[in-house]
Design a protein around this nucleic acid. Structure first.
Length: 466
RNA sequence: GGAGCCAUCGCCAAGUUGGUAAGGCCGUAGAUUGCAAAUCUGCUAUUCACCAGUUCGAGUCUGGUUGGCUCCUCCA
């Protein structure tokens, strides 16, 4: 297995800190709104990673957190009259529901920041004790960036502050503009506060992840975890800060490998609230089936930017259709063992930093070669069993092809319509038998108008929703 | 201002350590079909934004030009 380390900027062989085990921590969402396509892509990227590692027999521990204390959530609490817990519980459930629809396997641990406050407090306290963090008169706690000589090693953001025209607002209480908050003291009575030795307040964003990693992973004396993942936008400052505070608190590096997934753009524009083009997963799921969306979202390498548009989605759906048409040809049958060469080719592609393009090309190869053989001998039982095993293998590795093939082509069609379609097809078959092609073609036109395509096969007519 | 990424067929998109351009969509010709659809087969970039260099040899390395994009503020 090779993965691209976005800190070292090169593809490296995956050598876990503990042989045959893989510990992964992915920055999850801040739960104050529904999940958008960007969340989906991140989730899907690391879902693929976990699936491959599992198939390679690694004992994978996947942790994806929920940031459930945050200024944006607090703002929502103040606006909505709901409690923080009501809001976060709701959006966590919504997030999990959306990801499930996309076929994302559940993480082993899904920690919440609010459940890890003790770990945060002790980490902050350790940093204060070592004089790496300082408490201001207001009770805020800041991390003193100048105390960590390795600060900047993650993002390579070497900051000469004189020249830095960043738009960071400088707080007067900070010793250094680059210092970041570990703890924010609360000011009003309505604030959401937690009591600690240093002040009443709430944690900064960065410390949440560091603390949750220390809480859930043991690591070794060099690293806490193998892989730390997240969106490309988190590299700086979030991951830089995480790495720095963890390094200073634990004496070793946070992660051996860093992986970052690219963005999702909508029709060429970055998705953002200010542009008003956020595309929520739930809205996409209203239009497209989860598996079709998944197939589309994983079809482009996780590090590339993803330009979401309907044309490409339909294109990728056509590839999935072909897989399911093949599955129709072999149904019903029982799976035997997947073809070894096929399995190996897929694993090699995906083992190369999740090279999905090569994997998809391998699938196309398999599909056309198998169709070719079935054209010769439609009843090849051995091939049917192997093909089903191949497809089940794809379901395991990529999370596609797991549906019953006839229902796949009938997604979104209700029982009444289905019965109507099947009646028409029966009438058409009778007309065909009587060689009344004018009548049979008229029925086919009617079906086409309904958005239904028909296919005459040796075993009778089958139909698909176009 | 600072840091970094990208540019391959009409569209999407692969391309290990440089060795002579995967795959899909679309298009097109054919096999098959009552006709279609589905399926299969053939064709579809002498060329990788542009210029120069290194090399026996570069899409792949170096320098430059142009054009996109991201981060430096919450962000997946």
């Amino acid at each position: 297995m090779h993965i691209y380390d976005s800190v070292k900027k090169q593809k490296l062989p995956f050598e876990p800190i503990t042989p045959s085990k893989a510990s992964i921590y992915v920055c999850g969402p801040t739960v104050y709104d529904d999940a958008h396509l960007g969340h989906a892509r991140s989730s899907l990227s690391f879902d693929l990673l976990a699936r491959i590692l599992k198939a390679l027999r690694y004992d994978v521990t996947m942790v994806k957190n929920f940031t459930d204390i945050d200024d944006k959530i607090i703002k929502k609490v103040q606006e909505s009259k709901q409690s923080l817990e009501e809001i976060t519980t709701y959006y966590i459930a919504r997030y999990l529901e959306d990801m499930r629809a996309l076929g994302v396997q559940e993480s082993d641990i899904e920690p919440k920041a609010t459940e890890s406050l003790e770990a945060m407090e002790s980490m902050i306290q350790a940093l204060i004790d070592r004089d790496i963090a300082y408490v201001t008169d207001d009770g805020d706690v800041y991390f003193d960036v100048s105390k960590d000589e390795k600060y900047g090693s993650i993002s390579k953001m070497v900051g000469d502050d004189e020249d830095n025209q960043s738009r960071v607002e400088h707080t007067s209480q900070k010793r250094n503009p680059k210092d970041f908050a570990l703890w924010k003291a609360c000011h009003g009575d309505e604030d959401i506060c937690f009591d600690t030795n240093f002040s009443k307040g709430r944690p900064g964003w960065h410390i949440e992840c560091s603390a949750m990693i220390e809480k859930h992973f043991t690591g070794n004396n060099q690293y806490s975890i193998d892989i730390h993942g997240g969106g490309a936008d988190l590299l700086f400052p979030h991951h830089e800060n995480e790495a720095s505070q963890s390094r200073c608190a634990t004496g070793h590096e946070l992660a051996k490998y860093w992986m970052h997934n690219g963005f999702v753009n909508i029709n060429g524009e970055k998705m953002s609230k200010s542009l008003g083009n956020s595309f929520f997963v739930k809205d996409a799921l209203n239009i497209y089936d989860g598996e079709i969306l998944r197939n589309y979202l994983i079809s482009i390498h996780y590090r590339n930017d993803f330009n979401f548009n309907e044309e490409d989605l339909l294109n990728s759906k056509k590839r999935l259709d072909k897989l399911y048409r093949l599955k129709k040809r072999i149904t019903p049958t029982k799976a035997s063992k997947p073809n070894i060469a096929f399995q190996k080719a897929i694993m090699e592609a995906m083992g190369d930093d999740l090279n999905i393009s090569v994997a998809l090309a391998t699938i196309e190869d398999m599909i056309s070669a198998t169709n070719d053989k079935f054209d010769e001998n439609p009843k090849d039982k051995g091939l049917k069993k192997e093909t089903l095993a191949n497809i089940e293998f794809l379901d395991e590795i990529l999370g596609i092809g797991g549906k019953e093939p006839f229902s796949y082509f009938q997604i979104g069609i209700d029982e009444d319509t289905k019965n109507k379609i099947e009646l028409l097809i029966k009438q058409r078959d009778e007309a065909k038998k009587a060689k009344d092609y004018t009548a049979s073609d008229a029925i086919r036109d009617k079906l086409t108008a309904m958005g239904i395509a028909t296919m005459d096969t040796a075993d009778g007519t089958v139909w698909e929703k176009i």
